[in-house]
Design a binder for these strands. Structure first.
Length: 553
RNA sequence: GCCCCCGUAGCUCAGCGGAGAGAGCGAAGGACUUCUAAUCCUUUGGUCGCAGGUUCGAGUCCUGCCGGGGGCACCA
């Protein structure tokens, strides 16, 4: 019996108990909460249903819980039901019923953990969106890993997800980038406000290789040549490193295209007509304060040029035109001020501000010997996505970025880049998968025929550690659903660690394969099914994080 | 000044209102002739920043303080 089925059983039973006593069944919550108590003495599962409902029924929680316990104990699937504490109802499943979780996981296979909570929703998920003026830094690496995992998780809940990267390839930053390239091509130092990393010289050299006459072109043409080729090279570089990181996007959107296509002007005109913009001090302002922003924002500057937000507005309109009913933006904490204006942009077009969801992630800091190290281009302490991958590999890099909440700032230790370390919990999880795969291989080599899981006697899985492992497997669908609902992929990573732990402990205690010449027993078969179920969940979970599930380590 | 995030074991961090608060790392000691020891088992370790409030019940929700980080442009 899966937790979801148990919740249904408890509710059905409660409805029955109340109605036979002539009590109001509407006092019951729509969904019954089933949790796994920390303390094993409190049963396999517990529900606070009686605590929640007793007051509305004018009963004492313990009295209500007692009635429920009595009725539930009649059920075959429930081995024990008892009232505890202020009115908790602690439940133990019959081993046979618990085995259904193993069946559910094996029968669903790759689909185990998928849900329908977001079925029919079309979601635009924008993340990374780092400026094309340099390689992806550690901050962008975090969003690449978390955003990609979130995209997978949302899709697993049935959403149609479009992953999108917004290139800010218009405006002053690009100018600085281009001037830096030209300076490097001439062998001059970077401009005061320019970029000075080694990659600038590399790109400048590549521009000259492709367009040997670039430097001798007249001013504007020269600038354009370096812009066109240089920015293109930077795009390719960014896409390539993200691809190698396991993160691909459906749409790479170029801000510049909004300006050249006239989308920005059209959006601005539309908002002028609707009154969302007003003219003051020679500029056009968005009434963003009406939508929760702390001040109105200039959209068209007094020199007639669009401000940065003009691109955001046109971009939102473009997304809206593509039919998304939810636009998620993942931004760094240094962009927290954007929330109000992005929602204002939506509201200005008459959309529900809730169709814009801004996820703010905290910064990534470099640490050495416990002390913070400032990332500085001049000091050469800028760490890029590629640096991290070169040092620890894609799996470990992704995993370490995903496993903590984005609400917490993340410290990356520079020692990672000099010391080889297996401390990353990703190896613990992957090792569990490799062990599982190994056991399945051994079983195959022994010629053990597992048969259909439907026919196996999973009621033989009665060891404490077996129960623990099975119930952990049973949690998986709810964990994925919660991670999607809260947009928190780290919950899935933490869950996989607990699953790996339950697996390793089980492995240590419960031998699955027959030894020597022993005959294959039904218990061997049941345990091998459990092994395969755990393997399935680890593989599904790691897949949702974009981390590989190795067959061997 | 205003806004957002954080404050939990020596360190890094989990803990979407539930019952002696958890993991990893660190420290001390154990377990491999048998399915992978990248594992497992002991032990060590805590005023959950402080003070109020809501609740049958608060690390979790609310308010106010105190620390740390980030943000408050006709820059992008």
């Amino acid at each position: 019996m899966t937790p979801a089925a148990l919740a249904d059983l408890v509710r059905t039973t409660a409805v029955h108990v109340l109605s036979t006593r002539g009590l109001d069944t509407t006092a019951l919550p729509a969904a019954v909460t089933i949790e796994r108590p920390r303390n094993p003495e409190h049963g396999d599962y517990a529900t606070n249903l009686a605590l929640q409902s007793a007051k509305r029924l004018g009963l004492s929680p313990r009295e209500l819980a007692g009635w429920l316990a009595e009725a539930l104990a009649e059920t075959d699937a429930i081995a024990a039901a008892e009232v505890a504490g202020p009115g908790f109802l602690n439940l133990r499943l019959a081993a046979d019923a618990q085995g259904d979780i193993v069946r559910a996981a094996l029968q669903a296979g790759d689909d185990y953990g998928r849900g329908e909570a977001l079925a029919g929703r079309s979601i635009n998920l924008e993340f990374v969106s780092a400026n094309p003026t340099g390689p992806i830094h550690l901050g962008g690496t975090r969003w690449a890993a978390v955003g990609d995992a979130l995209g997978r998780i949302l899709a697993a809940q049935g959403a149609q997800v479009t992953r999108e990267y917004y290139f800010n390839d218009a405006g002053a930053q690009i100018d600085r980038f281009v001037r830096s390239l030209i300076a490097a091509a001439k062998g001059e130092p970077a401009p005061e406000d320019g970029y000075g990393g080694a990659y600038i010289a590399d790109i400048a050299a590549e521009v000259l290789r492709r367009e040997p006459s670039a430097l001798s072109l007249p001013g504007a043409e020269r600038h354009e040549a370096f812009r066109r080729i240089g920015v293109g090279l930077m795009f390719d570089e960014i896409k390539r490193s993200l691809h190698e990181f396991g993160t691909d996007f459906d749409v790479y959107f170029h801000e510049n295209s909004l300006h050249t296509s006239g989308a920005v002007s059209r959006a601005v005109e539309q908002l002028k007509e609707s009154g969302a913009l007003y003219h003051a001090d020679g500029a056009w302002w968005l009434r963003s304060t009406e939508y929760g922003d702390d001040k109105d924002r200039v959209v068209i500057k007094s020199d007639g040029q669009p401000a940065y937000i003009a691109g955001d507005i046109a971009y939102f309109q473009d997304k809206r035109g593509r039919g998304f009913d939810l636009c998620i933006y993942m931004l760094g904490a240094d962009h927290h001020g954007y929330i109000g204006r992005l929602k204002a942009a939506a509201a200005a077009f008459g959309d529900d501000p809730d169709s814009v969801e801004v996820l703010i992630g905290q910064m990534v800091n470099l640490v050495k010997d416990g002390k913070p190290v400032r990332m500085s281009k001049r000091a050469g302490t800028v760490v890029t996505l590629e640096d991290l991958v070169d040092a620890v590999g894609v799996d470990a890099a992704r995993y370490s970025m995903i496993r903590s909440s984005v609400d917490s700032s993340l410290d990356v230790d520079l020692d990672l880049f000099s010391k080889r370390s297996n401390e990353n919990p990703v190896f613990y999880v992957q090792y569990a998968h490799a062990r599982l795969a190994s056991m399945a291989r051994n079983a195959a080599e022994l010629g053990i025929d597992l048969g259909d899981v439907a026919d196996a006697d999973l009621g033989l899985l009665t060891h404490d550690r077996e129960g623990e492992l099975i119930r952990t497997i049973g949690e998986f669908p709810a964990v994925v659903a919660t991670a999607a609902e809260l947009r928190e992929p780290h919950r899935l990573a933490r869950y996989l660690e607990s699953l790996a732990s339950a697996y390793h402990k089980w492995y240590d205690t419960c031998r699955a394969l027959p030894q020597g010449d022993e005959p294959v027993t039904p218990l061997n078969i049941a345990r091998l099914h459990l092994n395969n179920a755990a393997r399935q969940v680890l593989a599904n979970g790691l897949g949702l994080l974009g981390v590989t599930a190795p067959e061997r380590m």
